[in-house]
C-alpha cells in the first residue's frame, strides 16, 4: 500500500491544545510540511509569541525560543545577525504583532532583517479571552467592545501588513487565508516563498494568515470559516503587497 498522507516528521505526535475550528493547527501543519519538504529541520529556529500559540514548542520539533509579548522580531534580529546561516521565523498573533510588538516589527522590517514572520490574524485577542485587538473590525463585538468596535472611540482596524508593504526593507509581504482548501494551499505556497526570500538574503518576509477563532467570535467552527471569507477577507483583502522577486523578473 502506498502512503499518500502522513504526519509531517517535525510535527510532534502531541494533541493540539487549540479550540475546535481554530486555524493555528492548520497553519502549524503547513509549516511543518514545508520544513520537511525544504529540509530545514536542523537549521530553522522558531520564535512563538505570547498568545494562543505560546505552546508551539509542544508541536514543532525544531529549535524554539519563546519571546516575551511582542518582541519576536527583535529576538529574531539578534539570532539572524549572529547566525546568518540559520532560518529564523517569528510566529505571532495580532496582539503580539500589531499591538504590543508594533515597534519591533516595523523596525525589523524597515532594517530589512532577513527573517520571516508568520502573522496569524483572527481579529481578536484569543488567549486572554476575546478582547478587542487592533485588527478587530468595525462593528465587531468583543469583550472590551461589547456593542461593536466604534471608529470614533476605538479607532480603525490596523492593517500592519499593508504598512510593512510600504517599507523598503521588506522583500516579500502577502496576505492569505485558511478559509478553503485552495486558500490553505496558497498559504503554504506563500510561506514557502517567504522562507525562500529569507534564504536568498533578500530582506524581510511576512505572511499574514487570516484565521478563524470560533470560540471568541462565538460561532460554530463551520460558520467561522464562512465569517472568515465573508467578513474578514472583505476587510483584509488577500494578495501580495510586495514582492521584490517579481520586480527583478520584470526588469
Amino acid at each position: 500500500m502506498k502512503t499518500i498522507y502522513t504526519r509531517p516528521k517535525c510535527l510532534k505526535p502531541a494533541p493540539f491544545h487549540y479550540c475546535p475550528g481554530c486555524g493555528h493547527s492548520i497553519i502549524h501543519r503547513l509549516m511543518c510540511e514545508l520544513i520537511d519538504e525544504m529540509d530545514l529541520q536542523g537549521r530553522i529556529i522558531g520564535i512563538p509569541p505570547a498568545g494562543c500559540a505560546v505552546l508551539a514548542y509542544n508541536y514543532f520539533d525544531i529549535d524554539i525560543c519563546e519571546s516575551a509579548h511582542g518582541r519576536g522580531c527583535a529576538i529574531a534580529t539578534g539570532m539572524k545577525r549572529a547566525r546568518p546561516d540559520k532560518i529564523i521565523f517569528t510566529y505571532q498573533g495580532d496582539g503580539d504583532m500589531a499591538a504590543i510588538g508594533t515597534a519591533e516589527t516595523l523596525h525589523a522590517a524597515n532594517r530589512g532583517e532577513k527573517i520571516t514572520s508568520i502573522f496569524v490574524n483572527n481579529a481578536v485577542y484569543g488567549m486572554t479571552g476575546g478582547q478587542m485587538a487592533p485588527t478587530t473590525m468595525l462593528g465587531q463585538k468583543t469583550s472590551t467592545s461589547p456593542y461593536g468596535r466604534r471608529p470614533d472611540v476605538e479607532g480603525y482596524p490596523l492593517k500592519i501588513t499593508d504598512l510593512i508593504g510600504t517599507l523598503p526593507g521588506a522583500a516579500y509581504v502577502t496576505r492569505t487565508s485558511v478559509a478553503t482548501p485552495a486558500k490553505i494551499l496558497a498559504t503554504k505556497k506563500a510561506i514557502r516563498k517567504a522562507f525562500e526570500v529569507q534564504m536568498a538574503g533578500l530582506g524581510y518576509s511576512l505572511v499574514e494568515v487570516l484565521s478563524p477563532c470560533p470560540t471568541n467570535w462565538k460561532v460554530s467552527p463551520k460558520d467561522s470559516f464562512i465569517y472568515l471569507e465573508e467578513k474578514m477577507e472583505k476587510e483584509y483583502p488577500l494578495g501580495v503587497m510586495k514582492d521584490i522577486t517579481t520586480k527583478k523578473k520584470d526588469s
Partner: peptide
C-alpha cells in the same frame, strides 16, 4: 482581564461616564 472587561462593559452601557482606552501595550 475580568476587571477591565467588566469596566469596558460598564462604560459601554453608559453606566459610567468615563473614557475606556484599550491601548496597545
Amino acid at each position: 482581564t475580568h476587571i477591565v472587561e467588566h469596566l469596558a462593559e460598564i462604560v459601554a452601557n453608559g453606566e459610567l461616564d468615563a473614557e475606556f482606552v484599550p491601548v496597545d501595550s
